Simulated scan of single mutants.
Amino acid sequence: MKRLLSVLLVDDNHHDLELASIAFDEHPQSARLITFPDGRSALAHLRTPDLSLPDVIVLDLHMPGMSGLEVLEAIRADPLLQYLPVVILSTSADAGDIRRAYQLFANSYMVKQPEFTLFVAQIDHFVAYWQGCQLPPPSV
């Protein structure tokens, strides 16, 4: 039996967080979603002592205060977090954004699908992919 995939999503858009929650609700037996509206609160959560870390982090790119790239940079600079897989999920298909994300060692870059049914399919593929990956055991 596969373990429950733990996904931490950071997105400043309340509507996008709601849509993601609905899409992930289609996978109650295989994925658990934790959401944060900004990078600073997500990093604070990730750095909480004795907390189980997520299996994968999903970052929006363009957020006020601390961009997804800045969050990614902070994760990669933190010895306790640097190994965590990080996926960028953004509306931006800009080549410069994509290049910069990979320069900061993002594990993948996905462009958000504009229609909800396509977005749900995108999340279905995301969950299936990460469920099939061998992930490190959860930390405590």
Rank of each mutant, 00 (worst) to 15 (best):
M1N: 13
M1Y: 07
R3I: 10
S6V: 03
V7A: 04
V10A: 02
V10F: 09
N13L: 06
N13M: 15
H15D: 15
D16S: 09
L17S: 05
A20E: 00
A23C: 01
A23H: 04
E26G: 00
E26V: 08
H27C: 09
H27W: 06
R32G: 12
L33C: 03
T35P: 01
D38P: 10
D38A: 08
S41A: 15
L43A: 02
A44W: 05
A44C: 12
H45D: 15
P49C: 03
L51H: 10
S52K: 03
D55H: 11
I57S: 00
I57C: 08
V58P: 02
L59K: 00
L61S: 01
H62M: 14
G65M: 12
G65K: 10
G65P: 07
G68V: 04
G68E: 10
L72C: 11
R76P: 01
R76F: 00
P79N: 05
L81C: 07
P85L: 04
V86I: 14
I88Q: 06
A93S: 14
D94I: 11
D94Y: 11
D97L: 10
I98Y: 01
I98V: 11
A101T: 03
S108N: 13
Y109P: 02
Q113R: 07
P114Y: 06
P114W: 02
P114C: 04
P114F: 06
E115H: 11
F116N: 10
F116Y: 14
F116R: 07
T117W: 09
L118H: 15
Q122W: 07
I123F: 09
W130I: 00
G132V: 04
G132C: 03
G132R: 13
G132Y: 13
C133W: 09
C133K: 14
P136C: 02
P137C: 01
